[in-house]
Design a protein around this nucleic acid. Structure first.
Lengths: 366, 366
DNA sequence: AATTGGTTCTGAACCGTTACGGTCAGATCA
DNA sequence: TGATCTGACCGTAACGGTTCAGAACCAATT
């Protein structure tokens, strides 16, 4: 099967029509509305098309005319390839892909460089709508998406007025987790969180920085923790929160190290993601700290690896979230009000949380 | 930040030009070639655009004129969502995404339904080229891709004359693995392989079916095994090959069960993928067979989970493969001849292969 | 004074298709 | 026999841009 490489498109609908001595409309109909012409003529059109090497109507021209691209754009602030490495993002993507293929829509991954503020790729994407996955509220790419006259659904964050949304109740979810730890008796805690803003800050996050975080999800989780622990008398300004820009287990490990160095007395490390928590577990093991006897570690998301190691965490239905986002975008838009889908979360007890040891136990063993 | 939902695009380049009293060319230049007009006028154009809610040049119209879509199409025969579940496909995707974002190109996942032969999605995709990942040689979607006047790169399979290609030397790779097993002393083996054709055949694959497989990769691996074991006197027609349509660990487990039921005497299960091998390990454990003492199991691919359990396998650079495919597609095309990239593989010894036990050992212990 | 060169802007052609509203011949009907 | 319907096809006008060859203008050079 030989084929010429990248030949200039040889035939168009018009040239085909000329060759056949019929109108362009008729050729178009041969492809799109077979009932509009006689079977015999249609056969001739298709036959001539084959002979001339006409590959069928040009998709771009068709899109221009019909105002339909047949694809959904996906925007995420990380590198494109990040989506294929992060388990939660992956689950979301799978759900979204499910919804798209169910509707016969393509999935157009928009390449954005998180470092540069180059918004051109958003403007170049020929899509019928956008799904925006977990970006900061001041993301210029998001602004570019919103400026385009196509429907948009935001997943997780940020909250944008008038835009359809799918996510979870972060505040409630983290509150349940916090209650669990409080019940176990933890009062001296440390927190590991993901990036709070577009600027890199690998280190402690001040309460001010926590409050002004541009990532709504992180902000809500931290606020929920502050509230829950504040209610039992913990002074939040004394609680160390370590932030990491990169979302990897290595980041989690180094963040845990930083926190444990600063305050060896903490009895629990609360992590705002499983990935960070897995890293924290590694660091704990490296230090000879037994989990959960010497240290409690919790995560968030409920990824497969968390399940494997029995991490105490909050499970959120990431695949369902992706699917819901797709359905929201592809379903009939509701002009009266933006729609919001809040999915359920579930506290996963796991085996990495236990009551804190007393000081004596810490020094002299159980 | 309020926004109107799905308003009919209010302004076009033309209406903006009319409003400003300049030509369309000038407005176009304001966006694409700032050096072609005075800074002052450009400022006015952009300002008016904002006022009128003009979101910038329409991407589809621009694509039509410039003959550039700014995106690469990806075709894979499985459901779209499969790509996000299979580790090898995922690695490929990540590499491809890396190449795409490096070139500022989007990645357009084409939704194909493997059950139905609906090729429309391929024709509807507005892309500048296609990457085809591991499809059967008689795939109608592949034919549709090749009929389109855009460059194409095929990864893994099939071999198409005149089309750029990236892959590995399956024959050499499997031969190395086979030699290893032969050296260990295995002669009575069983094989677990992935689907050989578009029709579902969950069961034994006859030598005829093996030879006529539409998946080139599987065909080459089976042929390599037949050759290597044939050279040491093993009659291939007596070797059981179990085929599975779905590529999951559950399939691997059931295939292993089917094979071990049919011939409990086999000393080694050679699997053409790690996923199948992981399933086989599960089944072996279920039967109380120790690996590798009682049964040798090997895989192919070198995925992370294989590494984790110490599977004896062949590692192939999946990420690199994706990246190479992207580079091939996006780099300057070579009109003189199709290019071919063959990546290196590496035998991973692992700990799931050992010499077979003698019959006595099998029955009476070591 | 004529030429040259540069900047800034314009007019018209073109990209390849589909939507819309026809026309027209022949069949059907009262 | 004339009116109406139907199936098959067509002409025109978008769809929303980009591009290229100039025009108009002004300043600097010869």
């Amino acid at each position: 099967m030989a084929r010429s490489i990248h030949v200039r498109r040889p035939a168009t609908l018009a040239s085909l029509a000329a060759e056949l001595g019929v109108s362009r409309t008729t050729v178009s109909n041969a492809y799109n509305r077979p009932d509009q012409l006689s079977p015999e003529l249609r056969r001739r059109v298709l036959e001539t098309a084959r002979r001339l090497g006409y590959p069928g109507p040009d998709p771009v021209a068709r899109s221009l005319r019909t105002r339909k691209a047949g694809a959904v754009g996906l925007l995420l602030t990380e590198n494109l390839s990040y989506a294929f490495r992060d388990p939660a993002a992956l689950g979301f993507l799978e759900g979204l892909a499910l919804a798209c293929e169910g509707a016969g829509q393509g999935l157009h991954l928009v390449p954005v460089n998180p470092e540069r503020e180059d918004v051109a790729a958003v403007h170049r994407a020929g899509v019928d709508g956008f799904v925006v996955y977990s970006v900061p509220d001041d993301d210029p790419h998001l602004a570019a998406v919103l400026s385009r006259p196509v429907p948009t659904v935001v997943a997780d964050q940020p909250n944008v007025e008038g835009v359809d949304q799918v996510g979870i109740d972060d505040h409630a979810a983290i509150t349940a987790l916090a209650q669990q730890l409080i019940t176990l008796g933890h009062r001296r805690i440390g927190v590991l969180c993901m990036r709070l803003s577009r600027d890199r800050n690998d280190g402690f996050a001040s309460p001010e920085r926590q409050r002004s975080a541009h990532f709504h999800v992180q902000r809500a989780r931290l606020a929920g923790l502050a509230e829950a622990f504040g209610a039992v008398g913990v002074d939040w300004s004394g609680v160390r929160v370590v932030e990491r820009f990169d979302h990897t287990t290595a980041s989690g490990a180094s963040a845990a190290a930083q926190l444990l160095d600063a305050d060896p007395q903490v009895t629990a490390l609360i992590c705002t993601s499983d990935i960070l928590a897995l890293g924290a577990l590694t660091e704990a093991r490296r230090r000879g700290l037994r989990v959960p006897q010497d240290l409690t570690v919790t995560g968030f998301d409920g990824i497969a690896d968390a399940d494997r190691v029995g991490l105490t965490t909050v499970r959120q239905p990431v695949l369902e979230k992706g699917r819901a986002a797709g359905k929201l975008l592809l379903g009939a838009p509701d002009p009266t009000r933006p729609r919001e889908v809040i999915l359920d979360t579930e506290l996963v007890p796991g085996s990495t949380a236990a009551p804190p040891r007393t000081s004596e136990e810490r020094w002299f063993g159980p």
